[in-house]
Structure formats: C-alpha cells, structure tokens
C-alpha cells in the first residue's frame, strides 16, 4: 500500500475484484476452470456462482476465526474450510441439476485448488473483519463470474450459434467446432486479455493514470 493512503472505501473494496484486480482478466487466476468449463454461458455462470459461494463461505469462516488461528497452521485450516464448502457446493449442484453436475464434472471438486480462494483467504479475509472481507469476496466472485461468462458466451455463440441455449442464427448455422474444444478456450481468453490490455494502455496513454499504477 502506498504510504499515506487511507483504507479503501467499501465501494473500492467491492469494485476491486470486478475491475482493477479482476481474477480472470487481470490476475489470470483460476484458469483451470476458466478454460475447461466455459463451453457455454450456462456452464460458465454456474461455475462462477459455485466459486462465489465457496469464496463467500470460506471468507466468512476464515475472517471470523482470524484471531484464533495460529500462524503455523493457517494454510491447513484454510484448506479444510475451503474443502468443506466445495463439498457442500458439490452436493448442492447435484441436487439442483444432474445435467449441470455432469457438464461441470471434476471441476466442481477442483474449485478447492482454485488459487483465487486460497489467495483471498490469505491476502484479505485473514486480515479484515467479516463485513469488509465479505464485501471484497462478493466483488471477487462477481468479477470471476463475469470473466467466465465473457469466455463462455463467446464460445457458445461461435461454437454452437446459441446463447443460453437459444439459437441466434437459425438452424443453418455452421458451428465453429474449435471454440468448444480446449484450443478455443485459449484463443478466446487470449483475445479478451488483448482487449483488456489494449483498453488499459489506451487509458494510460490518454492521460488518465489515476488508478492505473496503484497496486492493491
């Protein structure tokens, strides 16, 4: 933090994950689910919401317990807490929709190793009171969901000619098969990163360096 700068406001806490430190487009974290399950907008949203749920649950517990958890065993504690919420969300998705559960496959269980969650627990939740930590986690979760949705919607539109299962171009549409295959995920992610960086450099060049070089 820059010396002399005061605590971020609640709004800044919330917006951190959505724009300045977006998990997908800026931090490039959690790429395993981001690339693997984003073949459709629904899958992407479901994955984003599941991750947000785990993020919120673990943030709350970690933040509540932050005073009692000894430094030496904190990582072990965080992982147990995160794994718990991942298991819970795993059951919940299977109960809500089996089709969705099968589409997301092993990547629900793999939320446990998603770097965003452990990263936020260590960097934010363990150092802030529950209210503030939850606001930040909500922003991060929404940011991650937006990122996945940006990938998933492009891949579904080109790869199947649909959005949320609704055909956009009529029955004659030729699907771009590559978009639902793993290389398509990389291409679309690359294109989004290109766009984000271009927007950023353009913003910096046009004399608005206000937020650009402040590192949270």
């Amino acid at each position: 933090m820059i010396p002399g700068r005061q605590e971020p406001t609640r709004f800044e806490e919330f917006m951190e994950g959505i724009w300045k430190q977006n998990p997908v487009f800026v931090m490039v974290l959690g790429m395993c689910p981001a690339l693997a399950v984003t073949v459709s907008a629904v899958n992407a949203l479901a994955m984003g919401l599941a991750t947000t749920f785990v993020l919120l649950g673990s943030t709350l517990l970690v933040s509540l317990m932050r005073k009692w958890v000894p430094r030496e065993v904190r990582i072990a504690t965080y992982i147990v807490i995160i794994a718990t919420f991942v298991t819970v969300v795993d059951y919940l998705i299977a109960a809500i929709s089996l089709a969705l559960y099968e589409a997301l496959g092993a990547f629900i269980q793999l939320i446990v190793v998603n770097c965003i969650i452990l990263g936020r627990a260590e960097a934010h939740a363990s150092r802030n009171p529950p209210g503030r930590a939850l606001i930040n986690a909500t922003g991060m979760g929404i940011g991650f969901t937006i990122g996945l949705f940006a990938l998933g919607s492009v891949r579904e539109i080109l790869g199947a000619g649909k959005l949320f299962g609704v055909a956009l171009f009529g029955p004659e549409f030729q699907p771009w098969v590559i978009m639902v295959l793993p290389p398509g995920g990389f291409f679309v992610l690359g294109a989004w990163l290109l766009l984000f960086n271009w927007l950023k450099t353009r913003g910096a060049a046009s004399g608005k360096p206000a937020e650009a070089n402040v590192h949270a």
Binding site: V69, V73, T77, V80, I81, F85, T87, V88, A95
Partner: peptide, 23 residues
C-alpha cells in the same frame, strides 16, 4: 494448534454432514 485444527475440523464436519443429509 491442535485445539484450533480440531475446532475447525468439527465445524467443517458438521457442515458437510448437514449438506449431505439435506441433498
């Protein structure tokens, strides 16, 4: 340390069992 881990494990165990039974 052991006390903390035991507490965390208990809380988490209860959460998992509840979710399992509920779904």
């Amino acid at each position: 340390m052991i006390r903390t881990l035991a507490l965390v494990a208990t809380v988490c165990g209860v959460l998992i069992v509840t979710a399992y039974q509920g779904t």
